[in-house]
Design a binder for these strands. Structure first.
Length: 577
DNA sequence: GCCGTTTTCGGCCCGACTGTTTTCAGTCG
């Protein structure tokens, strides 16, 4: 059983315990375990073997035992017994916003409802209103949520949500006197997918700001509108919430709405031990009941004896301990990067010329750009054969003589074939500055074969970077079956760099894998995989995800100046010979 | 069920809204 399957079981257990009316604290314990397991950078099985399950936040004796049973047998007696106490399908009712455990139980026991379809029919028939504490309005509300669940898109990739949020923010700034406007929530934490957009700001006259917000061209429907906050739905079916607050309390409010939920809970537990009550309004000293407000998040964290924690790290794992020790990492910033290590040109399936790409990279302030077009196997991408690759290398030499502001590195994105061999002979690869190897075909191989395939590429001294290691496409294609722990250890040993692919629908490696790889000493490389000059801007997505993996500039090849980078790549080659 | 700058037992995050009620349960973020 993998981590997400185990998490799923505990989520079910938490839901069932809610239905059962168990004490809230027991339920929360399971919910906390679920969140922790979902964030884990390593497999539970490995942690079990190392005897480290209890080091996971929220995993104690009882849950550890259950994990061990699940890993060993794929089943859990406690779970099966619990499930048998309830009619099938009742848990599915909890998905509907507005339906909690009490309502779900009532629907099930009194009306025999066990599915969303039956629930809808029962509301339409008028059987739901009239149940204890359930009136007409509640029934209507549930029906509304039930129906919009079907049409509403799932979470949006950050590559779609962030530009949309920025568009709205710019429009709002043009049309109102809002200040300190900033995203909160998962967007600010830079999660790879976003449920809805939270925006926050301050203003002298909140009402006119709210008015302007609800009248923006992007707004399709106004869900709610008050004097300090409003919720709208955009034309892309995305919900956007705006809160306008007093400047004095902006810091604590932003902190509160940035989350994550688990981070805030852990923070408040800590506050409690210090005799402090934390809320979105500020910090209250319990002894005298005095409330202090905070205009900045830094002041808020400092009051708790903590360093400011970057939003990307606020997931309720170990960031608070680190902030208490004053050993927060100095996370990588876009401005630390000196070049892009993965781009395509019109020599293969890119849109723009080498020169156009180089000029665009120079305008971004880069010192170098690695041109890495596809190799011959990838016919669909017009991959280069040996002859055309040599012609491209000559072209790049000519351009480098002419261009002053940027150095173009000759490279290739060479295909890793089904058997792990590469698409070009070693001597040709040896002539290039940067060799990226990647899988593009035979994606359904079994795990051991796939892992051997990538290992073979990792052991090739001519390869510098493995691109998009898991080949996943967010919401479209599952990752290939790869034993990442083996891959990471091999990469750490050989000095092979792994890519953080910055394309918003790839983001591959993903956050928790970046965390693990970096922890094991694997070198990482940011590559936009740009197929046009516009795509070079995707770098910020990779930086955001790298920050979630606790990356500092020193962990990324791109932070090196060109000369150092080339020397370093050469050295690693020697290490593997 | 978890956990410890006070604890190995006795606590456990905080506030807001809604609708159904006559004082608050249920749900959400």
């Amino acid at each position: 059983m993998n981590n997400s399957e185990v998490a799923r079981v505990f989520q079910d257990i938490a839901d069932l315990l809610e239905l059962k009316g168990e004490t809230l604290f027991k339920i929360r314990a399971y919910q906390k375990a679920v969140r922790s397991i979902e964030q884990l950078p390593v497999g539970l099985e490995q942690l079990r073997q190392e005897g480290k399950l209890r080091q996971i936040p929220g995993i104690g004796e009882a849950i550890e035992k259950k994990i061990v049973e699940l890993l060993a047998t794929g089943r859990l007696k406690y779970y099966e017994d619990l499930r048998s106490e309830f009619p099938a399908g009742i848990v599915s009712l909890l998905q509907v916003p507005g339906v909690g455990p009490k309502t779900a139980m009532r629907l099930s026991t009194e009306l025999g409802i066990g599915s969303l379809e039956e629930l809808e029919a029962a509301i339409v028939d008028g059987r739901v209103e009239g149940l204890y504490r359930l009136g007409e309005k509640t029934a209507e509300n549930i029906l509304h949520h039930l129906r919009s669940m079907r049409t509403k898109e799932q979470r949006l990739p950050i590559g779609t949500a962030l530009p949309l949020a920025e568009e709205i923010m710019i429009a709002l700034q043009e049309r109102s006197q809002i200040r300190h406007l900033t995203p909160a929530g998962s967007l600010r934490r830079f999660r790879e997918t976003i449920g809805d957009i939270d925006l926050m700001g301050t203003a002298d006259d909140a009402e006119t700001v709210i008015e302007a917000f609800t009248k923006l061209a992007q707004v399709r429907e106004v869900l709610a509108k008050g004097s300090t906050k409003a919720s709208v739905v955009t034309h892309r079916d995305l919900q956007v919430d705006l809160r306008v607050v007093e400047h004095d309390a902006f810091g604590s409010l932003l902190q509160y709405f940035t989350g994550s939920k688990q981070h805030n809970i852990t923070l408040r537990e800590r506050g409690q031990r210090q005799g402090l009550k934390l809320s979105e309004y500020g910090i209250t000293t319990l002894q005298n009941g005095r409330l202090e407000t905070y205009a900045t998040e830094e002041g808020f964290y400092n009051r708790l004896g903590l360093q400011l924690i970057p939003p990307e790290l606020r997931e309720g794992q170990h960031e608070i301990e680190r902030a208490a020790e004053h050993s927060m990492p100095q996370l990588v910033e876009l401005s630390d990067l000196k070049g892009d290590l993965h781009v395509h040109t019109d020599w293969s399936d890119g849109h723009d010329s080498i020169e156009a790409m180089a000029m665009a990279a120079s305008n971004l302030g880069y010192q170098y750009l690695a041109v890495t077009d596809h190799s011959r196997s990838l016919g669909i991408a017009h991959g280069l054969n040996e002859e055309r690759l040599r012609a491209q290398m000559s072209e790049i030499r000519r351009l480098n003589e002419r261009l002053n502001n940027i150095q173009i590195l000759s490279g290739i994105e060479v295909d890793i074939r089904a058997d792990g061999s590469l698409d070009f002979p070693d001597e040709l690869l040896g002539e290039l500055d940067v060799v990226i190897a990647a899988i593009h075909s035979s994606l359904s191989q079994r795990q051991d074969r796939m892992t051997q395939r990538v290992l073979r590429a990792i052991e090739n001294p001519n390869v510098d970077i493995i691109a998009h290691p898991t080949c996943r496409l967010l919401g479209q294609r599952e990752p290939i079956a790869l034993d990442l722990e083996i891959i990471f250890r091999a990469a750490a040993q050989t000095g092979m760099a792994l890519e953080i692919n910055c394309m918003p629908d790839r983001l591959d490696l993903r956050d928790i894998h970046i965390f693990r790889a970096r922890d094991l000493g694997v070198r990482l490389a940011l590559g936009t995989d740009a197929h046009s000059t516009e795509h070079l801007k995707y770098m910020r997505f990779g930086v955001g995800i790298a920050r979630r993996g606790w990356c500092e500039a020193k962990h990324l090849l791109n932070s090196m100046p060109a000369e150092e980078l080339l020397a370093s790549l050469g050295q690693q080659e020697n290490k593997r010979i």
